[in-house]
Simulated scan of single mutants.
Amino acid sequence: MSVSGRTHVRACPERTCVGCRKRAAKHELLRVAAVEDACVPDPRGTLPGRGAHLHPDPSCLDLAVRRRAFPRAFRLQGALDTAVLRTFVEERAGLTSTP
Rank of each mutant, 00 (worst) to 15 (best):
H8K: 08
S59V: 03
G78I: 12
D62R: 12
P13F: 08
F74Y: 06
L85W: 09
D37G: 15
L54I: 02
D57A: 11
L61V: 00
S4G: 06
D42I: 09
R21A: 05
C39I: 04
L63W: 00
S2H: 02
V18W: 00
E90G: 05
L63N: 00
V3S: 14
V9F: 10
R44K: 15
G5F: 08
C12K: 13
D57Y: 01
A33N: 14
Q77R: 15
R21H: 01
L95R: 08
H55M: 10
K22P: 06
R72P: 00
E91A: 07
P71D: 09
M1D: 10
R23Y: 10
L54A: 10
A52H: 02
D42Y: 06
L61D: 00
D42G: 12
A38N: 14
T96N: 12
R23I: 09
L80K: 07
F88Q: 04
S97F: 14
A73E: 00
P13G: 04
G19S: 03
G94C: 09
E90T: 00
L54K: 03
F88Y: 15
E91K: 12
C20H: 02
R10W: 01
T16V: 11
M1K: 14
C39E: 08
F74S: 03
F70K: 09
D57N: 10
P13L: 08
T96V: 12
L63S: 01
C20D: 00
E91N: 12
V89G: 08
C39Y: 07
S2E: 03
L63T: 00
E14W: 13
E28Y: 12
P43H: 09
V65L: 02
R92D: 05
P58F: 10
V18E: 00
E90A: 06
P13T: 06
R75G: 13
L61C: 01
V9T: 09
A69I: 06
E28A: 13
S97I: 13
T46M: 03
P58G: 07
E90P: 01
T46S: 00
E14T: 11
G78R: 12
P13N: 02
T7P: 02
L95F: 08
D37F: 15
R67I: 00
E14C: 13
R67F: 05
